[in-house]
Amino acid sequence: MAKEIITAIIPTIIDHTVRPLARQVSYVIFYKSNLKDLRSRLKNFDAAKQRMNHAVEEVERKVNQKVEACVRNWQTEADEISREAEALLDDEGHAKTKCLYICPNLISYHQLSRKSTKLVRKIEEHENKKEFASISYNAAVEDISAIASDEYMAFESRTSMVKDIITELKKPDINKIGVYGLGGVGKTTLAKEVYREAMEEKLFDDVV
């Protein structure tokens, strides 16, 4: 009976003593390889962050596109993880310095190795989150047609100019019309009025 009881509790003893102890010892044994793995993961992670930054910058260059909030959050958290990993790798240098005086510095090695293992998992989990359905969305275009009234009062004499531009826009062989002049003469106001007219006449599906 006693033998059976001992046999039954041995796996529990192993789970609660031997395995945890072996895991803690492995942090010291695999100290160098764990830090090396972290450096490698961080390098790849920085490349993934850079690709995401490029995609976000491309979106920001588009007038009617906005970056999704979840993407911004991913970038912020990614930067925090990178700083945490870089700080840990800096601590590795301090541990080596201490080792010159107290060697081997097993406590520092154990802590750094354990933290680096956790950070590697953290990086992997966060990198897996970057597969978004979309990183941007179509923002509502500001309706500037109502702005034209006050500004356009000073420029009623140029109504014919707006009509000429609208007439040209209706021609299928015209794909570009330039408006030029000195600063302050009203080019922007003219463009806004052309916008309003084009929207009213429904010349195009989309007008910016």
Rank of each mutant, 00 (worst) to 15 (best):
30 F>T: 00
151 E>Y: 14
121 R>Q: 13
127 E>P: 01
159 T>G: 12
6 I>V: 15
182 L>I: 12
105 N>H: 10
130 K>F: 07
170 K>Q: 14
41 R>F: 04
125 E>P: 02
168 E>S: 15
31 Y>C: 01
103 C>D: 00
131 E>K: 10
123 I>H: 00
1 M>C: 12
61 R>N: 09
105 N>V: 07
147 I>Q: 08
124 E>M: 05
96 K>Y: 04
93 G>F: 13
27 Y>I: 00
114 R>G: 02
182 L>C: 06
30 F>Q: 04
58 E>H: 11
94 H>Y: 08
14 I>Q: 01
6 I>Y: 13
20 P>H: 03
79 D>G: 12
15 D>C: 12
202 K>A: 05
174 I>P: 01
180 Y>M: 07
183 G>F: 08
89 L>I: 06
86 E>S: 14
131 E>R: 11
186 G>T: 00
57 E>F: 04
167 T>W: 04
162 V>K: 06
77 E>L: 14
56 V>A: 09
57 E>T: 03
42 L>Y: 04
66 K>D: 11
139 A>E: 10
193 E>L: 14
200 E>H: 11
123 I>Y: 01
200 E>F: 11
21 L>Q: 06
60 E>W: 07
84 E>G: 07
161 M>L: 15
134 S>N: 13
38 L>P: 00
41 R>S: 07
137 Y>H: 14
133 A>Q: 15
116 S>D: 00
154 A>M: 11
31 Y>Q: 00
95 A>H: 06
44 N>K: 06
80 E>N: 14
160 S>E: 12
60 E>L: 13
9 I>L: 14
203 L>V: 04
175 N>T: 14
144 I>Q: 03
14 I>F: 01
194 V>A: 07
197 E>H: 12
143 D>T: 05
208 V>M: 08
203 L>N: 09
205 D>A: 15
129 K>L: 06
182 L>A: 13
151 E>G: 09
208 V>N: 07
206 D>Y: 10
129 K>D: 04
15 D>I: 05
75 Q>L: 15
138 N>S: 13
96 K>D: 01
32 K>A: 05
179 V>Y: 10
81 I>A: 08
33 S>M: 04
120 V>R: 04
114 R>C: 07
43 K>W: 03
90 D>V: 05
84 E>P: 00
